[in-house]
Amino acid sequence: MSLQQEIEFTLNGVPTRVRVPVDMSALDMIRSVVGLTGTKYGCGEGECGACTILLDGVSVNACLLFAVDCDGRSVTTIEGLADDPIGQKLEKAFVEAGAVQCGFCTPGMVMQSRALLAKNPNPTREEIQRGIEGNLCRCTGYVKIVDAVAAAARAKE
């Protein structure tokens, strides 16, 4: 068995303490230790973006992050956007724009879009395309995802 370590962090606003193997990824911790399954495994090597989370507000691939590196930090997953007005606007816009097909990439797309809107509240279509280029979608051809992010940015609080 690999070495274990206890860590404390804020998960979607809730103080959280878990014991994890030191070589465990944040993705595995979120999915199998904490039990939140909205963050998806798509490739395990930072190429697809399905596991995108916010770490102190910055979007990262949870598969490339060690769980122990969450210690003392604030982690937001797709489940945490339920309390976030901009997150809610994004989710609604994804539904209304038809940006969801199989839906497997969607949580990661929404998280990445959330990070984009935090940095750039009024992105152009090109900036949105650039902003989500690390997130792969096999179903939609991206058009409606870009529509959704643009609509969420336009939507009033």
Partner: peptide, 8 residues
């Protein structure tokens, strides 16, 4: 099925 998919 889009709302539940978008919400993870």
């Amino acid at each position: 099925d889009a709302p539940e998919k978008a919400g993870g």
